[in-house]
Amino acid sequence: MDKKEPLLLIFTRNPELGKCKTRLAAKIGDVPALEIYKFLLSHTVGITKDLEVEKHVYYSESVWTDDVWNDQTYKKQVQRGADLGLRMQYAFENGFNSGFQKIIIIGSDMYDLSQGDLEEAFELLETHDFVVGPAEDGGFYLLGMKSLKVKLFQNKSWGTETVLSDTLEDLKTEKVFMLPVKNDVDRYEDIKDIEAFQSYLKHIKE
């Protein structure tokens, strides 16, 4: 494998009942929340499997084989670190230490994301040092870079609305491209008006 080709990191939770989409589950229940997460995983596979880049999936708990992530298409590892920042730093370090020169990380719960969005983000790393996809909730749904900047993974309140602003503060002297704002799926309000999710929400009374 030519290490000069780009690398896509995909962070995912093992889809287990009661362990994923907990904020969504609080409103709609554990079973529908798990079904929605599996739907989002399938969507993420759909927008990444044909990308002409190396692809590494980082599981939250343990590596699963024969699951939605095809073992021939995706290399599989387990996230390591005490918080999200350290886990992302570990994954980026692995990639750069392996010789990859353009690395992008995404989660696996972005219904708004397309294959074209990812192709564009990798292209932007030709002319920018960093690419950031801002999320509506104040975090980011995509982060790309050409060299490791450890500061990005430190001193953040992960999962809060300050992550994006703190990240951009760390990047204020860098050449950064900001992608369009998109909405990740964390809460009932994120999906209640989207047609694709209606079959999972029939039991919900407003």
Rank of each mutant, 00 (worst) to 15 (best):
G138Y: 13
F177E: 05
F100T: 03
P180F: 04
K175A: 11
R80W: 11
Q89H: 15
M110L: 14
M88T: 14
F140P: 02
I106M: 03
Q89V: 05
H128E: 10
F140W: 12
N94S: 14
S114K: 07
L148Y: 06
V131F: 08
G139V: 07
K156S: 14
D186A: 06
N183W: 03
V78D: 12
M88V: 10
Q115C: 08
Q89E: 15
D129K: 08
D170F: 02
N97M: 10
D186K: 12
I104L: 08
T65F: 15
D170L: 01
E189T: 14
G107Y: 01
G138C: 09
L118M: 06
F96W: 04
G81A: 06
M178S: 10
Q101D: 00
E93H: 13
G116K: 08
T167R: 11
D112C: 07
H128M: 11
Y58V: 02
K149C: 10
I105T: 14
V176P: 09
A82R: 02
E123K: 04
Q101I: 01
L86P: 00
E123R: 04
G116D: 15
S165W: 10
S157N: 15
G107D: 04
V176R: 04
D109I: 09
E161I: 08
M178N: 08
I103W: 03
V132A: 11
D186M: 09
M145E: 11
S108Q: 07
L86A: 15
F140A: 05
K156Y: 03
L143Q: 06
M145C: 13
Y90I: 00
Q89D: 11
L152Y: 02
S62R: 15
Q79I: 02
N183D: 10
D112G: 00
